[in-house]
Amino acid sequence: MIEMVKIAGVREENPTVKTFTLDKQIDARPGQFCMLWIPGLDEKPFGFAKLNGNIEIMVRSVGSYTREMMSLDEGDLIGFRGPYGDGQFKLKGKHICVVSGGVGIAPLLPLVDEALADGRGVSVIHGAKTKQELIPLEKRLGDDVSLTLTTDDGSCGMEGTACDALRELLDGGVDQICACGPEPMMKSVLDVALDAKIYCQLTLERYLKCGIGVCGHCSIDESALMVCRDGPVFEAKQLVKSEFGRYKRDKSGAIIDL
């Protein structure tokens, strides 16, 4: 059931990304998500950028809904339901490599927190098109995490994609990969992980309607796993020979190529 939750704080990450702290604490696993409702406008799914204490939600301005969200301030209310998703990140390896594109870093942050608390090694690769689109992570991640930045245009960090950086890191003892970002990037990560035979989990984004595994709109071909219910985090083997990296469905249910 939706409840209205107060926004306890807003932080600007870069010109198009803000992090909202909600006056809400929940028992959820890294990778799970919630549906956030702006009354009279729309409701969209978001992963959790922080699960210890008040939850945090990271939002990039991409359309009318997120533009409206950018105008929300401390003290404003937003509708919340969740957490949802049986497909969650789990710690398997001793040295986890987190691969993120842009705001894709958000649902990976609680996983990093959990891995560090459990004494595991963590490398974070964070990529974006340009320096301006990177999320400032140094302070958030602290000294125990090895951070590699990449930009497509070379304006900050290594020139190339997050997946290029992953290939270079693989010899360093990485035994688990967790990724979130644009689907073509994640498809490359999946291929690298399969090739290197490293356990890999990825989060999938699809148009969600009900969010609770009933309407079937986010079902992926051919397994019919539902992103909202069976995901949003999947193991690499669940996505091999699927629609992943090839197509998705729009709001009407029509197939659109990626």
């Binding site: 009933v214 079937g216 397994s223 539902m226």
Partner: peptide, 8 residues
């Protein structure tokens, strides 16, 4: 319920 796709 579920029936958007053949796979589902």
């Amino acid at each position: 319920v579920l029936g958007v796709t053949a796979a589902a």
